[in-house]
Simulated scan of single mutants.
Amino acid sequence: MTACWLCRRPLGDRVEWHHPLPKSRGGRDVVPLHPICHRTIHATLSNAELARGHRDADRLRAHPAIARFLGWIADKPPDFHAPTRRRH
């Protein structure tokens, strides 16, 4: 069983692939994520912000908005889905 790169929960039926270094910035490596985790990353940080300092999973998890999300999602089932809010 593979775990989500961001939240570390087991993956469900739907898996999305994320470039820790955005593809637009030359990234080639991909990591598996839940769709809701993937959407949260991109709703919270721009590609420029990801490239500048949030390529590392531990650093990304430490971001205040991502940390709040991780606390909320921790007890949800692998295929849980909810609308993702974009940052303002």
Rank of each mutant, 00 (worst) to 15 (best):
A48K: 06
P22I: 10
L11E: 01
R14M: 03
R25W: 15
T40A: 05
A51G: 10
R52A: 15
R61P: 15
R28Y: 14
A82I: 04
W72C: 02
A74T: 03
P83R: 03
T40D: 04
A65H: 10
G26Q: 12
D58M: 08
P83K: 00
G71S: 12
L70K: 05
D29P: 09
G27D: 14
I41L: 04
D75G: 13
R8D: 07
F80E: 01
R55N: 11
R52F: 12
R87P: 08
V30A: 10
I73H: 05
A82W: 03
C7F: 00
R9L: 11
I36P: 06
H88C: 06
H88A: 14
R61Y: 14
P64F: 14
H54I: 05
L21K: 14
W72H: 10
P32S: 05
P35S: 04
D56G: 10
S24Y: 12
W5K: 01
A67M: 07
V15M: 02
N47H: 07
G53W: 09
A57N: 08
H42F: 01
W72D: 09
R28M: 13
K76T: 04
K76C: 05
A51F: 08
R8E: 07
I66S: 11
D29L: 14
T40N: 06
G26P: 14
A48L: 07
A48I: 03
I41V: 10
T44A: 01
G27K: 08
P32V: 00
T2Q: 05
S46E: 05
D29S: 14
T44N: 03
H38S: 06
H81V: 11
D56V: 13
T2M: 00
A74I: 04
R61E: 15
R68T: 15
H81I: 07
S46Q: 03
F80L: 02
R59D: 14
E49R: 02
D13G: 10
L6V: 01
A51D: 13
P35C: 03
R85E: 15
T84N: 11
K76N: 02
W17Q: 13
I41E: 00
P78A: 05
